[in-house]
Design a protein around this nucleic acid. Sequence first.
DNA 1: TTGTAGATTGACTAATCACTCTACAAATTT
DNA 2: AAATTTGTAGAGTGATTAGTCAATCTACAA
Lengths: 187, 187
Amino acid sequence: MNKEQKILETALKLFVEFGFHGTPTSKIAKEAGVANGTLFHYFATKETLIKELYVSIKNELNQLLMAKLDVNDEIKIAAKKLYSNTILWALANKDKFHYIQQVQFSPHLAQIPSDVSLEQTKMHTEFIELGKAKGAIKLMPTDFIFTLVNSQITGIYQYILTQPPTQQHEIIEQGFEMIWDLIALKK
Amino acid sequence: MNKEQKILETALKLFVEFGFHGTPTSKIAKEAGVANGTLFHYFATKETLIKELYVSIKNELNQLLMAKLDVNDEIKIAAKKLYSNTILWALANKDKFHYIQQVQFSPHLAQIPSDVSLEQTKMHTEFIELGKAKGAIKLMPTDFIFTLVNSQITGIYQYILTQPPTQQHEIIEQGFEMIWDLIALKK
DNA sequence: TTGTAGATTGACTAATCACTCTACAAATTT
DNA sequence: AAATTTGTAGAGTGATTAGTCAATCTACAA
């Protein structure tokens, strides 16, 4: 297997379990089955590794969401897909989702160039603006809607974790209706 | 000034700015104006310092919320107070609020005994259950409501940061009506 | 005055860590 | 086949770090 990929995978696992501080590069290399020097061949610094891991995970999620989106769908249907695919992905990739939060509430986030961050939210803000243009979504500021939905997703994800898997589907459904109620323009 | 307090204050500032990893204990001691050994006189390990700082900040917020709560208030009024006092406190104590998030999405959270965490959410869950009993809040699971409101608060806080201060009051008002709409039982 | 317990100091240390360097192997290009 | 680039290894290094410790200071009670 690709060693660069293997390093990223191992780093993810260890960072989530022990934090950035608690994870020495030597441990990452050892557990990934590569030499110390190999790690630094692919990632110049530990900081680089932290950031590239973050960007690669965010891209993975975005590409998945894009792939599952259908331009012919109604806004509400499309929104529901975006929403539930995000939660389902988070549940199937807990470490990755957790890592995103970990970085977002750490000083490392400030290190990521704003154009990279912007690129990653672009798809979502464009979607919200389309929804407003089509009269499906309230004319609130796009950033406001984006932030609300995002935090709602995080909240629902955290709650689902505490519930039995049989309930998960219903909670996702219920959660969507609630958030849609919040942002949909009533006719 | 009390040296223990001074250490906590300095640690907060540095942890938020540079992260746990990027903040050596020696730097905390130096900037707090105490000797290296003094820090370890009060906090046996760096980990202890991280955890005690978290608990002390959470307690501070809870005590403030309690103090501002009036048992004679209607549920909706009381809920609004809890909500807006939390956001106002967060805006006035950005570092502290940021630190709470930082710990909550780090492996350090797992180190905090569950009875301590429980004690801190007790007041909120009791309030939600009172609201349900009085027929003011929907009969959804208490944890679900708690998580939703919490993430909503985080979301609104983050959005407010990007807006001019003149707008803040209105966003808080608007945000409350939205979240109340979500959880209130319609008569 | 003396005794005592806690507060405070800062030099010290053992361990750890991020990162370098050199050597060689494999792949790719010329 | 020679030359060049790229991948991989792992021992080595200098700097840093969390935490220790013996010594002094302060407050206050006996």
